[in-house]
Design a protein around this nucleic acid. Structure first.
Length: 583
RNA sequence: GCGCCCGUAGCUCAGCUGGAUAGAGCACCGGACUUCUAAUCCGGUUGUCGCAGGUUCGAAUCCUGCCGGGCGCACCA
């Protein structure tokens, strides 16, 4: 049960009884009526703005609504106090039994606690990473990869049918460059001296074994052929090898896409033609000449007729070209076809995760989806800002030309998967993020990963201890569910339960906002409250979890911390971080 | 010149989609270990929420205009 939703129903029901009795008018609109935990705990457990929201509709002063409403709410079994405060809020304090019942729900659900049916099984497609298949993944890809993956987990948790997808940019000039670079490495593998890799080719060592594999498979059959004869095969071979590399890198982060979609396939099987025919039928394709961009005009600008998509009809600033002047398709044309394909596969909800430098591309892509789906499909583009690496207080400089960017593999090997994933989710996706190597190596509160995992490990440490000290005490979940919880009376204990009870709501809000970083903030707070309770036990031995001479209270407290462990595990699962049991 | 994102404590950032006296960590000061893991906890200090208007019972949050920073701006992917 979501306690806030539950109390909201009660409030609305009570307003209904007041209307029945003629105190309030009938037919009131409750859409803005909220029931939330007040920021200041001294205001009670939950607060409602009912009187404030209804004042205009009812043509009554907030106070005149609040007084009778509070009176009726106070009569509810779960409510021990109802007070009117501020401009007309009603603050409710709920009974301890009501809260203890919530702990039972946590234990019954286990680490599935917080799962929701909010999305009703609706299909949603989330495309992320989609890095060019021209080399290993590097630091610039990591954030989008982690964000996209955590978002996919989060959406699944609230009841979406999620498809995780990777778009392979295996068409276009950069793949030809890759094929030529591979041909060099192939000749090298056959014993030629190739010298310095020419400017404009991919110089990375990762192509060396691919060249060797090619030589081992085919011998020298491609060596003296003209480029036109080997290019196609080398493209295919190179892309396959690069995608193996990429999949291996992603596996290191624990990321696995269900669908890898090839851009090239859209060119080859007529996907682009079909998508553009769809737009053509709607009268959204025409030949025209674009205005030069406002402000500074590029030096080589010249007016030329192009095939254009009427993106401006769907909120974009200008119409966008879908054919280059040489007649070939633009990248945008293929992207239209790709999203057309998603729509054809039945997706109405689509999420694309991009780097911040692609911000200028959002409007045209959204326009295309609206046009293709007759406004039925919804594309949400989430941008991930830059990650700055810091070491020893200094920014780690990287440049593509120098080839000294930090790879995903190096990063994960150095600090570990859990640290990378957690740190990438400690900021809003559209805010820049500093990744400080020194802080991640530190085992202290500076390091949020350790802080949260430490709480989880401590709980398991208590269970290990109780197995030694009270071996006969039933301590598995089935027994803890039936424990008598009435001994949980300390405010820190009850606060912990209240916070756990807000977890399902926190999950739904994070999913609605599509902001998985909120999960990490929630977990930090939960861990903090747990650590606080732990230390209370240091000061007052009566508050320890294990009281050897009182098995009832021990069991109640085991139930409490088992609940915390479940919620921590539930949240860490969204983030894709392992809940460790020993540290 | 246009579009998108951002501006909150000395620093790094939250702020539950409009609520009450704006929060947390770091930093700084002072306390708690014969302990269920001190990798922790407790207390103290810190603000023109970039500026100016507007919307209303109520604005850090929504709208408009400025100021400041980032990214992107015909056929590249």
């Amino acid at each position: 049960m979501n306690p806030y939703a539950y109390i909201r129903e009660q409030v609305i029901a009570m307003v209904g009884t007041l209307a029945d009795d003629g105190v309030l008018p009938k037919g009131l609109d409750f859409s803005n009526l909220s029931v939330e935990a007040p920021r200041d705990p001294s205001h009670g457990d939950v607060a409602t703005n009912a009187a404030l929201v209804l004042t205009k509709q009812a043509r009554m002063k907030p106070h005149d609504i609040a007084v009778p409403l509070a009176e009726r709410l106070a009569g509810l079994e779960q409510v021990v106090a109802a007070e009117i405060a501020g401009p007309g809020f009603i603050n409710l304090r709920l009974s301890n039994d009501f809260w203890r019942d919530r702990l039972g729900e946590v234990l019954a659900a286990g680490s599935a606690y917080g799962d929701s049916t909010m999305a009703g099984g609706e299909k949603i497609n989330i495309e992320y990473v989609s890095a060019n298949p021209t080399g290993p993944l590097h630091i610039g890809h990591v954030r989008g990869a982690v964000y996209g993956d955590a978002l996919a987990n989060l959406l699944a948790k609230v009841g979406h049918d999620v498809c995780k997808e990777y778009y392979i940019n295996d068409a276009g000039a950069q793949v030809d460059v890759l094929a030529r670079s591979l041909h060099l490495r192939y000749r090298e593998a056959l014993g030629e001296t190739i010298g310095e890799i020419p400017e404009g080719m991919y110089p990375g060592d990762y192509l060396v074994p691919v060249g060797q594999a090619m030589a081992a498979r085919d011998g020298d059959k491609w060596r003296s052929l003209a480029e036109a004869d080997w290019l196609e095969e080398f493209r295919r071979f190179a892309v396959a090898a690069m995608m193996d590399l990429v999949r291996g890198d992603l596996a290191r982060l624990g990321i696995e896409h269900q669908v890898f979609f090839s851009e090239d396939s859209l060119h080859k099987d007529g996907g682009i033609d079909r998508a553009l025919a769809t737009l053509q039928e709607k009268g959204l394709i025409y030949t025209g000449v674009l205005e030069p961009p406002k402000g500074k005009t590029p030096d080589d600008w010249e007016p030329r007729p192009q095939t254009l998509f009427k993106a401006s009809q769907f909120g974009d600033d200008v119409d966008r070209p879908i054919r280059k002047s040489d007649g070939s398709w633009t990248y945008f044309a293929a992207d239209i076809a790709y999203h057309h394909n998603k729509v054809e596969r039945g997706y109405r909800q689509m999420v694309d995760v991009w780097g911040a430098d692609h911000g200028g591309y959002i409007k045209r892509m959204k326009a295309a989806v609206r046009a293709l789906s007759d406004d039925q499909g919804q594309l949400d583009v989430r941008l991930c800002q830059m990650v700055r690496l810091l070491r020893g207080g200094k920014v780690v400089r990287m440049s593509k030309r120098a080839g000294n960017f930090v790879t995903l593999r190096e990063l994960v090997d150095e600090v570990g998967r859990d640290v990378v994933r957690f740190m990438m989710l400690t900021r809003k996706n559209d805010a820049p993020l500093d990744f400080d190597f020194d802080a991640t190596m530190e085992q202290s509160k500076d390091n949020p990963v350790f802080y949260v995992q430490y709480a989880h490990a401590r709980i398991h440490s208590v269970f290990r201890r109780v197995a030694e000290e009270l071996p006969d005490l039933p301590r598995n979940v089935e027994n803890l569910i039936m424990a008598d919880l009435s001994g949980l009376t300390d405010s820190a204990e009850l606060d912990l339960i209240k916070q756990m009870a807000s977890w399902p709501r926190a999950v739904e809000i994070a999913a609605q906002a599509r902001e998985p970083h909120r999960i990490s903030f929630y977990l930090n707070e939960l861990a903090s409250n747990f650590h606080a309770l732990w230390n209370k036990g240091n000061a007052d031995p009566q508050l320890r979890f294990i009281i050897t001479e009182d098995s009832d209270i021990t069991q109640a407290r085991l139930a409490l911390i088992q609940g915390v462990a479940f919620v921590l595990a539930s949240g860490l699962a969204v983030m894709g971080v392992e809940p460790v049991e020993v540290m």
